[in-house]
């Protein structure tokens, strides 16, 4: 099947967040692919291959929106195995969830994929809005927070973990699916071609040397917002950002009696 996967770059979550005035300072950020998008790429590659024979079953296209530097993250997606990539030029500060969803919709209308596969959220903003907005704008069925995907004759069966257990959804294609962490467990994606006994390694695949070399020859098509006929026109405005207050030092108690007394009288939990 033809799968469009969205790839957002985010500041490395391992790095300490820096603030400049009332905004987050990303000038020295080390940019990486949003982890959930990396899981989505892995899920797309698993859907589109027979892991036993290496046969390819469809096309996987990576899409990102942002400044030209984002091509580095797209190159990583290509090195993992995506077939080609699209980079829509845009300024980070103009890209709120609604703008991104409208841009993705415009690309979907051009590419006509069978599946729009996305991470459930981006680890920078943690908004978790774009997949749902895309489904609404496209008027496509959606299955969010997918922990397992099984391709079948009617489309996709998606299992999602909810508080009360596992919810199973059947969606017709084309559809929007957003993936959760567990989609990268060894047998979470079933496409009917890869033998049922095949277990992938846990996690998104590493880029092999051959993959990195092959990625050099793959296309990253750059499109402008004007080409797509979309204006970013963000509807949300970042007012300010500040770090959470630091933790205060705890209180040392002399003995158990004092602890019990404090729990009873101050914390009132006993």
């Amino acid at each position: 099947m033809k799968i469009l996967v969205t790839v957002k770059r985010v500041p490395d979550p391992e790095q300490k967040v820096k603030f400049k005035g009332t905004s987050v300072d990303v000038s020295a950020a080390n940019w990486v692919i949003n982890a959930f998008d990396e899981y989505a790429i892995e899920a797309a590659l698993r859907l589109n291959e027979n892991a036993a024979t290496g046969e390819k079953l469809g096309e996987t296209i990576a899409l990102s929106i942002g400044p030209k530097d984002v091509s580095q993250q797209l190159r990583s997606a290509l090195a993992m195995g995506a077939d080609r990539a699209i980079l829509v030029g845009g300024a980070d500060e103009e890209l709120d969830s609604f703008a991104v969803a409208r841009i993705v919709k415009a690309v979907v209308e051009r590419e006509k994929p069978d599946l729009l596969l996305m991470g459930k959220l981006a680890t920078d903003g943690e908004a978790s809005q774009v997949p749902q907005l895309c489904a609404a704008l496209l008027d496509w069925p959606q299955a969010t927070f997918a922990a397992q995907i099984t391709a079948n004759a009617e489309g996709l069966e998606v299992k999602r973990e909810v508080d009360t257990g596992i919810e199973v959804k059947q969606v017709k294609l084309p559809a929007v699916v957003s993936v959760d962490l567990r989609i990268i467990s060894p047998t979470a994606v079933v496409n009917g071609k890869t033998p049922a006994t095949h277990a992938y390694q846990e996690g998104p695949r590493y880029a092999s040397l051959k993959g990195i070399m092959a990625a050099k020859k793959k296309e990253i098509k750059e499109i402008s917002l004007a080409d797509l006929g979309v204006k970013a026109a963000p509807v949300t405005k970042l007012v300010s950002a500040e770090p959470p207050a630091g933790r205060k030092a705890g209180v040392k108690v002399k003995d158990v009696a004092e602890l019990v007394s404090k729990l009873k009288n101050e914390a009132k939990v006993l």
Binding site: R75, S76, A207
Partner: peptide, 18 residues
């Protein structure tokens, strides 16, 4: 180069995990 950097980053991740 971009490829070498990709390779280095990948190697750090693989070895960090394994």
């Amino acid at each position: 180069s971009a490829d070498e950097e990709e390779l280095r980053r990948g190697a750090r991740r693989v070895l960090g995990e394994r």
